[in-house]
Nucleic acid binder design. Structure first.
Lengths: 239, 239
DNA sequence: ACACAGATTTAGCCATGCCTAAATCCAGAT
DNA sequence: ATCTGGATTTAGGCATGGCTAAATCTGTGT
C-alpha cells in the first residue's frame, strides 16, 4: 500500500471491513446479535468467509463475538459503521443534488465511492450541502460526531382511512420500489392521505396532492411516515 | 472478490493495475520504454514488486515487456490508462466545479475516487459538465472513445520580452506551484505578457491583467502557453 | 436421552500485491 | 576481454480476503 496515512484517531479499515461493519449495523438494529450465516448471506460470501472475518474483527476490538452465538458491534465498531454510513448518505445526497441522479440510482453510485472518499472530502460535501440531516430516501445522516437519530417506525400501512401524514423515509433497499414511486411523483416530504384499504393485504388507495393512487401494501409498509401535514423541513432543497 | 461483474468489453483492472498503467503512461510519453526501477520509484514500491507486476501485466496483454529493457503500453494498455486518466480529470473538474475545491487540491481528491467511480458515473459527470476538454489545470481529458489531444509544448519560459500568450496548462504534479499561482490569481486562459527576463535562470517579470509579477523560472517552465491573446474557449465555465 | 439438521467453525487452498534478500544481467571503464 | 556497479529479476515471505470440504456444535423433536 502506498503509505496508509496513519489516520490519527482510528484503525484504517479496509473496504471489506467497512462492508462487514455496515452489514452488521443494519442487521443488528434491534440490539440482538447477528448470526454469521445471516451476515454471509447479506454480503454474498460463504459462511466460512464471514466466520473468519468476524474472528479478525473481534480481535481488532470492533466486534463483540461469541462463537456460535453471533456478533454485535462494539462501541468502536459502531463508530466505524456510522462513519461509512455517513459517507454513503452524504455521497447519495451530493450526487442527487449535483448530478440530478434519481433516488433509485444514487445508492449504487454512492456505494462505489463510499470506501474511497476521505472524511475530509466528505466534510467538504456536507458543508456544501448545508449539513443535511437526511439523504434522498429520508435515511438519517450521522453527524460529524457520529451520532444518528433514527426516525419513528410508523409506516403508511399503519394509517386508517381518512388519516393523513407526511412521507419521511423510504427503504432504499429496493430500487424497483423507488422507481415505482418516482414514476408516480411520490417523494419525501409529500403529504399523503389514506383513502381506502382492501382487506387481506390488498392494495390501498391514497391521495397525493390532487392525485389518487393505488399502492401495493408491501410498498406502503416500506414507506415511513410522520403523522400530520407537511411542515417546513430543515432539509435544504436548493443549494 | 464479490463477483467481478465481467465488464462486457474490458478486463476489470484493479486499483493497483490502474496505478501502474497510469504511471507507465506518464513516464513513457516519448514512446521510449519505461524502466522497472523508474516505475517502482514513481509508485513508491520496491523494484522487485514492480518487476513482478509488469510480468503479470505483460501476460495480460496490457504491456509490451522486454526483460531488462523495460515496458511500453500496448494499445489495450494505453486504452486502460486513458480510461483512468479520463476518470481522474473529469473528477477533478467535477469537484472543482461543484465543491469549489481549489485547483491545487482537486488532484488529491480525484485520486481517491478515480478507481472507484464507474465509467457510467463518469459519463454522467462529463455530460453534466458539458463534456469539458480540459481539467482545471488545463490537462486534456480523453474523450469517451479514449482519444486524447495533447497540447503543444511551448512554455512561458519560451517567451521573449514583449511577447504575450495565453496560459493553457500548468503541471499538476506540484501543489505548491499551483497554490503559488492561485494566490497571485494566475489561472488557465489568462493572458500573460513577458516583460523582462533575468539571465542565468533568474526570475522573469510578467504582466497578468493589470498586475506585474515576478516568477521563478522553474515555474515559468511548468506553465504551458499558446501564443497570442486569449480567444473565447470551448471550455464550459458555467453549468 | 438422543439423533439429526442446520448453523458454525476449522482446515487447507488460491489470488493479489506488497516486502527483503539473493541471484543475475548488462553496459561502460579499464 | 574482463571487471564491476547499478539495474533487474528470482526466490521466498507475509497479509488480506475470498473459496470448498470437512469437522463440530447446538437446539429441537421424539
Amino acid at each position: 500500500m502506498a503509505s496508509p496515512v496513519t489516520t490519527s484517531t482510528s484503525t484504517s479499515t479496509s473496504a471489506s471491513v467497512e462492508d462487514y461493519l455496515k452489514a452488521i449495523y443494519s442487521l443488528g438494529r434491534g440490539g440482538e446479535r447477528v448470526a454469521t450465516t445471516e451476515l454471509a448471506e447479506r454480503l454474498g460470501f460463504a459462511a466460512s468467509s464471514a466466520s473468519a472475518m468476524v474472528g479478525r474483527l473481534a480481535e481488532t476490538g470492533l466486534l463483540d463475538y461469541v462463537p456460535y452465538a453471533g456478533v454485535r458491534l462494539t462501541e468502536e465498531g459502531e463508530r466505524q459503521a456510522l462513519r461509512v454510513i455517513r459517507r454513503h448518505r452524504l455521497l447519495e445526497s451530493f450526487l442527487a443534488r449535483s448530478l440530478d441522479i434519481p433516488w433509485d440510482r444514487v445508492h449504487l453510485y454512492a456505494e462505489q465511492l463510499e470506501h474511497a472518499a476521505s472524511d475530509e472530502l466528505i466534510d467538504l460535501i456536507a458543508a456544501k450541502l448545508g449539513d443535511p440531516t437526511v439523504d434522498p430516501h429520508g435515511d438519517p445522516i450521522p453527524t460529524r460526531e457520529l451520532t444518528i437519530e433514527e426516525s419513528g417506525a410508523e409506516t403508511l400501512a399503519d394509517l386508517e382511512p381518512g388519516q393523513s401524514a407526511t412521507l419521511i423515509r423510504v427503504s432504499d433497499s429496493d430500487p424497483e420500489m423507488l422507481r415505482y414511486l418516482a414514476e408516480r411523483e411520490i417523494g419525501i416530504d409529500e403529504e399523503i392521505e389514506m383513502l381506502d384499504r382492501q382487506p387481506f393485504d390488498g392494495p390501498c388507495e391514497i391521495r397525493v396532492g390532487a392525485r389518487t393512487e393505488q399502492l401495493p401494501l408491501a410498498l406502503a409498509r416500506a414507506m415511513r411516515i410522520r403523522r400530520g401535514p407537511t411542515r417546513p423541513s430543515a432539509r435544504g432543497r436548493s443549494a
